[in-house]
């Protein structure tokens, strides 16, 4: 029996619950009980990575300090090393120069790992979106679990984001390999690290780059006209 099958079996309710009784019965299988305990433990001990990018990082520090005190959520252990962290709070503008280390840090985090994009900049580039060195959203490079809008989100807004994340963790099930992909499989594929070339290059988009380059070489006039059209919109 593989790990996957084992987990699924643990989770599947084998005892059919009669209608009308569902509200009275909380646990139908050992798997569900395990799930609840396991998620309770995980959601109350999220260790964020102490990793500040910009303005939002200051609000993050304010959240961690005495007035808002994220220790009440079991999150006070800010770790400087990605190896010990569960949650990466991307707090601030992600620049093209910085996204390279961020992707590397993300790859170094041990699973299960979560990413919280804090503030308009981390979500979608924010007011600096049009800038030539600004990544329009960290979710273009690493998967994001929770978005917390605001510029900057107040500490209470960030705490709300944490609660939303806890809710997400609560909803994850050991029996469903899609929600807990880190069990029952081999090591996950790292996100390819972008390259700093003439502009930032995402290796995942290399094929588009090649195609565009070929198009430019084949018919430079057409491509140029296309560029102009693009600039006009």
């Amino acid at each position: 029996m593989t790990n996957d099958d084992f987990l699924r079996e643990l989770h599947d309710p084998d005892i059919p619950v009669p209608e009308g009784m569902t509200s009275a019965i909380a646990v139908t299988s050992f798997g569900k009980l395990l799930n609840a305990i396991y998620n309770w433990g995980r959601r109350n001990s999220i260790w964020p990575m102490s990793f500040g990018l910009a303005c939002c990082a200051i609000e993050m520090i304010a959240t961690a300090s005495s007035r808002f005190d994220q220790a009440r959520f079991g999150m006070e252990v800010l770790r400087a090393s990605p190896r010990q962290a569960d949650l990466m709070i991307v707090s601030g503008t992600v620049t093209k120069k910085m996204v390279v280390p961020i992707v590397r840090l993300y790859n170094q985090m041990a699973e299960p790992k979560y990413v919280l994009a804090m503030g308009a900049c981390a979500i979608g580039g924010g007011p600096f979106k049009e800038g030539y060195n600004v990544v329009s959203g960290i979710d273009k490079y690493v998967p994001v679990d929770v978005y917390v809008p605001g510029c900057p989100p107040t500490p209470q807004a960030l705490l709300h984001g944490f609660m939303i994340l806890q809710k997400k963790i609560d909803g994850q099930s050991l029996g469903n390999p899609n929600s807990t992909p880190w069990y029952g499989r081999g090591p996950s594929d790292p996100v390819p690290v972008p390259i700093l070339g003439p502009d930032i290059i995402d290796p995942r988009q290399a094929h588009i780059l090649r195609r565009q380059a070929e198009a430019t070489q084949a018919a430079p006039d057409v491509a140029e006209a296309g560029d102009d059209a693009e600039a006009q919109v």
Binding site: I123, G124, G137, D139, V144, D145, V146, Y147, V148, P149, G150, P153, T154, Q156, A157, H160, G161, M163, I164, K168
Partner: peptide, 13 residues
């Protein structure tokens, strides 16, 4: 209203 955190930005933002 600052409690706007969401799981998806494409549809909600």
């Amino acid at each position: 209203d600052y409690e706007l955190a969401s799981y998806d930005r494409t549809s909600a933002h």
